[in-house]
Amino acid sequence: MLPRSAPPPGLEQAITGNLDAAFNLARWLLRDPSAAEDVVQESALRALRYAEGWRGGDGRAWLLQIVRNTAYDWLSRRRARGEVALEAPAGDVAGPLDDLPDPAPDPEAVLAETQAREGLDAAVAALPVELRECLVLREVEEMSYRDIARTTGVPVGTVMSRLWRARRALAGACVEGTTP
């Protein structure tokens, strides 16, 4: 389970310093806050176990790659158990888990914010997961194409075309949606 020896210097910082990014990605991939907590916790364990893959630096792309793989494992386990569909069916914007309460410190403020943002939020949540991850890593995490490619395990060219498809889909949603 846990490594017997102390992890290499800076590794723990790479994990704790990127926990928000890790949770944000997991939350966007899984669309389920409590599953995202499970996945991030499992990812932190994997990160400690696979410490030799760590090359120093701020470790964000490295940790997010682990989070992403763990999240995909979780999604395929969930699909295998037949609990819910992996993706919301086309045209059905709300996922089956989307109405679960978010364990946030201030539910009312969160609800108000959610309502204000619902259009765009829902449009992003409805994107296929491989487009959604590229979009979130670029627009929310502001990662470079190279880091996104590393995190998602696909070539840079694929990142670029996925990003373009995601944005084109959202450009449609932005026009149709209620622009505040």
Binding site: L19, P33, A44, V124, V140, R167, T179
Partner: peptide, 26 residues
Amino acid sequence: VSTRLRRELPYHRAPDRLRAAITAQM
């Protein structure tokens, strides 16, 4: 599109209990 996403998409920060659990793990 980018302007709207950056302005409006929520950033989901790690809950405190998750942070505490992972810190404890380490």
